[in-house]
Amino acid sequence: HNLTITQGKLFFHYNPKLCLSEIHKMEEVSGTKGRQERNDIALKTNGDQASCENELLKFSYIRTSFDKILLRWEPYWPPDFRDLLGFMLFYKEAPYQNVTEFDGQDACGSNSWTVVDIDPPLRSNDPKSQNHPGWLMRGLKPWTQYAIFVKTLVTFSDERRTYGAKSDIIYVQTDATNPSVPLDPISVSNSSSQIILKWKPPSDPNGNITHYLVFWERQAEDSELFELDYCLKGLKLPSRTWSPPFESEDSQKHNQSEYEDSAGECCSCPKTDSQILKELEESSFRKTFEDYLHNVVFVPRKTSSGTGAEDPRPSRKRRSLGDVGNVTVAVPTVAAFPNTSSTSVPTSPEEHRPFEKVVNKESLVISGLRHFTGYRIELQACNQDTPEERCSVAAYVSARTMPEAKADDIVGPVTHEIFENNVVHLMWQEPKEPNGLIVLYEVSYRRYGDEELHLCVSRKHFALERGCRLRGLSPGNYSVRIRATSLAGNGSWTEPTYFYVTDYLDVPSNIA
């Protein structure tokens, strides 16, 4: 807008934040220059609390790290170098490059900038070799853009010569660093050979998330399962459950009422301010606690030095998902009996873990797994792929695949051998790939016309006998059925096997 004052003059007093240069501009645009008398524009009460600059400061050096910015700028000295009290560095987070010096300023003089007072450097006698002032900004957020400017702080001049310097606002972004852990990993099994893994992005990506790394490792069953005799009275049979499938998407929606109208769909109840505040506090606490764990609990591995020492970490090797089922080394339970199943799973520490690289999504279907087997899954978020990966501390989750139908069934015939004193040795093959492992066998036998009897055969007993022995049988026709019990439950009964026990007292003698 054009402003013209045809008559009258300007009068400025007691404006401590208004620089004289701005008042002189007002004289020019209003056409009143030359009308004012000496005392109409006070030299001592206008701009006496402001830094009124008329020179431009330029930054000469900028260096960044993930949490620091090192700045240096060209030296500046007023005509009387004693008038320079120091520099004021202003900075704040700036997602967009549209910041002005006066953003967030209120009537009390406060604003949204963080201000650092910096002492002037030592003055050199040689004007050509003056030290460049600077400042190291610490405690910054990774991968965050900051708006920065600097200006001088000078003393009051009796001659009211307006001098000083100020830089333009520059924008500097800190470097990326390792992201925080992925949030809320959930693993479920939808079949006997697959596990579905879902997660949420890290709360602090500290860069642009480029991919996720998912490692999985087959877990050995508890050692007590191999040692305890679950045929003993009072000892509860062990059981394991597989990871249940995901709930429906509708039930997972946030901010939804727990109660549904019987007449149909209901609208979600909005969260109160107290609920939102509580969630923010919980989120802040979780982030602080995660940072504490990362800094205190997890110790970084030592990389190899120039002395030739090897990095103890196993090298990563990509495998196809079809090879995942046989990740671990199978060892027989008892070496003397080769027909026992290889369900003991000690994992070799030198073995390469299978892994998958996930790009542009937060889910993965891990296939080719062994049925009813526990897996430990390790999830890392990465925001750099080359020249070397920059990934987060791992988040861990466990899951067990679903049982395989008929995996616990005894394959092959049940054979028998009759000894003296009416002892019958029953023999059968253990299931080759049971659900988890076989903890015991149930032997059901009966003599024709009598009630059915049951015998429990422990895992250890089966390994020693290759089956079991029935003792003290009365003469007669017998039928026997056997079924295995694994961590997933009972298998199917075998087809009945028949044998006849004679009275050993009636056996004919070869003595003449």
Score class of each variant (00 low, 15 high):
Ser203Ala: 04
Asp204Gln: 07
Asp204Thr: 07
Asn208Ala: 08
Asn208Met: 07
Asn208Asp: 13
Ile209Met: 15
Ile209Arg: 15
Thr210Pro: 13
Thr210Tyr: 02
Thr210Asn: 15
Tyr212Thr: 09
Val214Arg: 01
Val214Thr: 09
Val214Ile: 12
Val214His: 00
Val214Gln: 00
Phe215Lys: 10
Phe215Gly: 08
Trp216Leu: 13
Trp216Ile: 11
Glu217Asn: 13
Glu221Pro: 13
Asp222Leu: 09
Asp222Ala: 14
Asp222Arg: 14
Asp222Asn: 14
Glu224Arg: 10
Glu224His: 15
Leu225Lys: 09
Phe226Lys: 11
Phe226Ser: 10
Glu227Gln: 10
Leu228Glu: 15
Leu228Pro: 01
Asp229Lys: 05
Asp229His: 03
Cys231Trp: 03
Cys231Thr: 03
Lys233Met: 12
Lys233Tyr: 12
Leu235Tyr: 06
Leu235Met: 11
Leu235His: 07
Lys236Met: 05
Lys236Ser: 07
Lys236Ala: 09
Lys236Tyr: 07
Leu237Ala: 08
Leu237Gln: 06
Ser239Gly: 08
Arg240Glu: 09
Arg240Lys: 15
Arg240Leu: 14
Trp242Lys: 03
Trp242Thr: 06
Trp242Arg: 07
Ser243Asn: 14
Ser243Asp: 05
Pro244Ser: 15
Pro244Gln: 15
Pro244Tyr: 15
Pro244Trp: 14
Pro244Ile: 12
Pro245Asp: 09
Pro245His: 10
Phe246Val: 12
Phe246Met: 08
Glu247Asn: 14
Glu249His: 07
Ser251Pro: 09
Ser251His: 14
Ser251Phe: 06
Gln252Tyr: 13
Gln252Met: 06
Gln252His: 10
His254Glu: 05
Asn255Glu: 07
Gln256Arg: 07
Gln256Thr: 08
Ser257Met: 04
Ser257Trp: 10
Glu258Asp: 10
Glu260Lys: 06
Asp261Phe: 05
Ser262Pro: 11
Ala263Gln: 13
Gly264Arg: 12
Gly264Asp: 15
Glu265Leu: 11
Cys266Gly: 10
Cys267Val: 06
Ser268Thr: 14
Ser268Ile: 13
Ser268Leu: 10
Cys269Met: 09
Cys269Leu: 05
Cys269Trp: 03
Pro270Thr: 04
Pro270Trp: 03
Pro270Ala: 08
Lys271His: 05
Thr272Met: 10
Asp273Leu: 14
Gln275Ala: 07
Gln275Thr: 04
Gln275Trp: 08
Ile276Thr: 04
Ile276Cys: 02
Leu280Phe: 15
Ser283Asn: 08
Ser283Gly: 03
Ser283Phe: 10
Ser284Asp: 15
Ser284Met: 15
Arg286Val: 04
Arg286Cys: 05
Lys287Asp: 03
Lys287Phe: 03
Thr288Tyr: 11
Phe289Glu: 02
Glu290His: 05
Glu290Gly: 04
Asp291Tyr: 02
Tyr292Asn: 06
Tyr292Val: 04
His294Lys: 02
Val296Tyr: 07
Val297Thr: 03
Val299Ser: 03
Pro300Glu: 04
Pro300Ala: 09
Arg301Gln: 08
Lys302Ser: 06
Lys302Asn: 11
Lys302Arg: 12
Thr303Ile: 04
Ser304Met: 15
Ser305Leu: 13
Gly306His: 00
Thr307Lys: 12
Gly308Leu: 09
Ala309Tyr: 11
Ala309Met: 05
Arg313Ala: 15
Pro314Leu: 05
Ser315Gln: 10
Ser315Leu: 11
Arg316Met: 13
Arg316Ser: 07
Arg316Trp: 15
Lys317Glu: 11
Lys317Trp: 08
Lys317Met: 09
Arg318Asn: 09
Arg318Tyr: 04
Ser320Ile: 14
Leu321Pro: 08
Gly322Val: 12
Asp323Ile: 12
Val324Tyr: 00
Gly325Val: 10
Gly325Met: 15
Val327Arg: 12
Val327Phe: 12
Val329Tyr: 14
Ala330Val: 07
Ala330Met: 06
Val331Ile: 13
Val331Lys: 13
Pro332Asn: 04
Val334Ile: 14
Val334Lys: 13
Ala335Thr: 11
Phe337Tyr: 12
Phe337Asp: 08
Asn339Tyr: 10
Asn339Met: 06
Thr340His: 04
Thr343Met: 10
Ser344Met: 12
Thr347Met: 15
Glu351Arg: 12
Arg353Gly: 15
Arg353Ala: 10
Pro354Tyr: 15
Pro354Trp: 12
Glu356Ala: 14
Lys357Phe: 14
Lys357Pro: 12
Val358Gln: 15
Val358Met: 15
Lys361Leu: 11
Glu362Val: 15
Ser363Cys: 06
Val365Leu: 12
Ile366Met: 12
Ile366Trp: 05
Ile366Phe: 15
Ser367Thr: 08
Gly374Arg: 14
Gly374Leu: 13
Tyr375Ala: 08
Tyr375Ile: 14
Arg376Glu: 01
Glu378Trp: 07
Leu379Ser: 02
Leu379Ile: 12
Leu379Cys: 08
Leu379Phe: 05
Leu379Asp: 00
Ala381Trp: 00
Ala381Asp: 01
Asn383Leu: 05
Gln384His: 07
Asp385Pro: 12
Thr386Val: 01
Thr386Trp: 12
Pro387Lys: 14
Pro387Phe: 12
Glu388Met: 10
Glu388Pro: 08
Glu388Ala: 07
Glu388Ser: 09
Glu389Gly: 07
Arg390Val: 11
Cys391Phe: 00
Cys391Lys: 02
Cys391Arg: 00
Ser392Gln: 00
Val393Trp: 15
Val393Gly: 05
Ala394Tyr: 06
Ala394Thr: 11
Ala394Asn: 08
Ala395Lys: 04
Tyr396Pro: 04
Tyr396Glu: 06
Tyr396Ile: 03
Ser398Ile: 07
Ser398Pro: 08
Ala399His: 08
Arg400Phe: 06
Arg400Glu: 06
Thr401Val: 11
Met402Lys: 14
Met402Gly: 07
Glu404Tyr: 10
Glu404Arg: 10
Glu404Ser: 11
Glu404Thr: 07
Ala405Phe: 14
Ala405Thr: 08
Lys406His: 11
Lys406Leu: 08
Lys406Ile: 10
Asp409Ser: 12
His416Ile: 10
Glu417Ala: 12
Ile418Met: 02
Asn421Gly: 10
Asn422Cys: 06
Asn422Ala: 14
Val424Ala: 13
Val424Asn: 00
His425Asp: 04
Met427Val: 06
Met427Arg: 10
Gln429Arg: 07
Glu433Thr: 15
Asn435Val: 05
Asn435Met: 01
Asn435Thr: 00
Ile438Glu: 00
Ile438Val: 13
Val439Ala: 15
Leu440Ala: 07
Tyr441Pro: 02
Val443Gly: 00
Val443Met: 08
Val443Lys: 02
Ser444Pro: 00
Tyr445Leu: 14
Asp450His: 10
Glu452Ser: 09
Glu452Pro: 15
Leu453Tyr: 00
Leu453Pro: 03
His454Met: 09
His454Asp: 12
Leu455Val: 12
Ser458Phe: 03
Arg459Phe: 05
Arg459Gly: 12
His461Gln: 10
Phe462Tyr: 08
Leu464Ser: 14
Leu464Thr: 14
Glu465Thr: 12
Glu465Ala: 12
Arg466Trp: 06
Gly467Phe: 06
Gly467Arg: 13
Arg471Cys: 11
Arg471Val: 09
Gly472Asn: 10
Leu473Met: 12
Ser474Pro: 06
Pro475Asn: 11
Gly476Arg: 01
Gly476Met: 01
Gly476Gln: 01
Asn477Thr: 09
Arg481Lys: 15
Ile482Trp: 01
Arg483Ser: 05
Ala484Arg: 02
Leu487Ile: 09
Gly489Ser: 05
Gly489Val: 09
Asn490Arg: 12
Gly491Ala: 12
Trp493Arg: 04
Trp493Pro: 01
Thr494Lys: 06
Thr494Trp: 02
Glu495Ser: 14
Glu495Pro: 06
Pro496Ser: 10
Tyr498Lys: 12
Tyr498Asp: 06
Phe499Lys: 02
Tyr500Thr: 10
Tyr500Phe: 13
Thr502Trp: 03
Thr502Val: 13
Asp503Tyr: 15
Asp503Lys: 05
Tyr504Thr: 01
Leu505Phe: 11
Val507Ile: 09
Pro508Ile: 12
Ser509Ala: 10
Ser509Asn: 14
